[in-house]
Amino acid sequence: MAVQIDTDGMIIHARVRGARSQIIERGRRSVPITGIIVHQTDADTAASSLSSYTRPKANGAHFLIDTDGTIYQTAAIYQRTNHVGPLRARCLLTGSCMPAYGPKNSGVDAMHRIEMTKPPGDRYPSNMEAVGIEMVGRARLPLGFRDPDPRKQRSAEQLRGEFGVYDTPSAAQNQSLSWLVKALEDSMQIAPGEVFRHPDASRKNPTEAQGANWNLPVTAP
């Protein structure tokens, strides 16, 4: 299900609305696209995220999917954006990590540096190789939540950041996500196994995109 992509890297299709913000773009990619990272915005509306992408030094991903399933393209595919963060070790999933990951090299920066010495297929895709897809959804504290350590005197926002649980994506969001992932895989020759939730690839809230499903049946166009 390949789709038309113009020379700037913008999808030309009725299902995708153009909302490009060059502010979040960080220069043309120097290597091929090899994967997709699925995020949630930690915001209640698409409008708030689209607005944030217009602010100086803003970061964002290439696509934004609203709760009603509307797909916005917010950056050109051929442009790198900052949306992944320091990489986790992909080899931890299979137990195949080499001794490099001892106590001295298990920190965030050290792990990222080691991972970036590996070819893309042996690690998670970084900002340079990954297309980012955001889904509107906010992390919220569970009903009746109480700070497990009141002595730290954390603010409500700090508690939400640490203990918040992300909204479950809507059925319309997951249907659009499945369509978009399939379109990107077919158009950019991305392997199906190279689609990841943000907290799998980097050190993020583990509930982010936990309800994301990009494997639903889709039909063309």
Rank of each mutant, 00 (worst) to 15 (best):
M10H: 08
I12S: 11
H13C: 01
R15Y: 06
V16R: 04
G27Q: 05
R28A: 12
R29Q: 09
S30Y: 12
T34E: 00
T34Q: 00
V38M: 01
Q40F: 06
A47W: 06
T54G: 14
T54N: 14
G60H: 03
G60M: 01
H62C: 06
T67F: 08
D68H: 09
G69W: 08
G69Q: 07
I77S: 05
A89N: 11
C91D: 15
L92F: 15
S96L: 15
P99S: 15
A100I: 13
S106D: 14
S106W: 10
G107Y: 14
V108A: 11
H112K: 07
T117E: 15
P125E: 00
E129I: 02
V131F: 03
I133L: 05
A139G: 03
L143H: 09
G144K: 10
F145R: 02
D147G: 06
R151W: 10
K152V: 10
L159H: 02
R160I: 05
E162W: 01
F163R: 03
V165D: 05
D167Y: 03
P169I: 04
S170F: 04
S170V: 06
S170I: 01
A171L: 12
A171Q: 15
A171S: 13
A172H: 11
Q175I: 13
L177P: 03
S178E: 07
K182D: 14
A183F: 01
A183R: 00
D186G: 11
Q189C: 11
Q189E: 13
Q189P: 02
E194H: 07
V195K: 04
V195I: 12
F196S: 01
H198S: 12
A201C: 13
K204C: 03
N205D: 10
A209G: 06
Q210L: 15
W214Q: 02
P221R: 08
P221A: 09
